[in-house]
């Protein structure tokens, strides 16, 4: 029997009554999955947006810490966020956050048992994509209007 150093691989091995082993199929992963399908693309996007938002939380911590430290520290933070490096980062966090929230609500809908058929899956998928675009642009319109006034 092939050696395995990982408990999770052992879980994939079953045994017949005669003692011979059978390797169970693995669930889909990046190398075997057709990433051009909307289902798989949106699935992995939820993971990517969650990871991106995790990194984005650093800017939240920096923001409150700078505010607590005083006007100079806050000014440096705000200066960076308003720069040509800061604005694309903020825009990226906004888009990742809206995608993660909307796709997360889609997850919760599945958890309540709704929307598993293929047409509904595609419809809610498009709603998440369109919703991300709309909410990201809306958030930035609000910010730019506030900035300008």
């Amino acid at each position: 029997m092939a050696h395995s150093n990982d408990a999770r691989e052992a879980l994939m091995i079953g045994r017949r009554t005669d003692g011979t082993t059978v390797r169970r199929p693995l669930s889909p992963h990046l190398q075997v999955y057709d990433m051009l399908q909307m289902t798989s693309a949106l699935s992995i996007m939820h993971r990517i947006s969650g990871a991106a938002w995790s990194v984005g939380l650093i800017f939240f911590v920096w923001w409150v810490a700078a505010a607590a430290a005083g006007p100079e520290a806050y000014g440096r933070m705000a200066g960076f966020m308003g720069s040509f490096i800061g604005v694309p980062i903020l825009f990226g966090i906004t888009a990742a956050a809206w995608y993660h929230i909307l796709a997360g609500i889609r997850h919760l809908m599945w958890d309540f048992g709704y929307g598993y058929d293929i047409p509904t899956t595609y419809r809610t998928g498009w709603i998440v994509i369109a919703g991300t675009a709309v909410m990201t642009v809306l958030t930035w319109i609000v910010a730019i209007v506030a900035w300008a006034s």
Binding site: Y74, G75, A97, I105, L108, T139, V142, A143, A146, W147
Partner: peptide, 28 residues
């Protein structure tokens, strides 16, 4: 946690957006 975070994050995002460009005094 995702159910709790949904309203909290939307509240936070728009609270910050409508105060974009405000100085430290206002934000603090």
């Amino acid at each position: 946690t995702s159910i709790a975070l949904t309203p909290l994050m939307i509240w936070f995002a728009f609270s910050i957006a409508i105060r974009a460009g405000e100085p430290w005094e206002v934000m603090a």
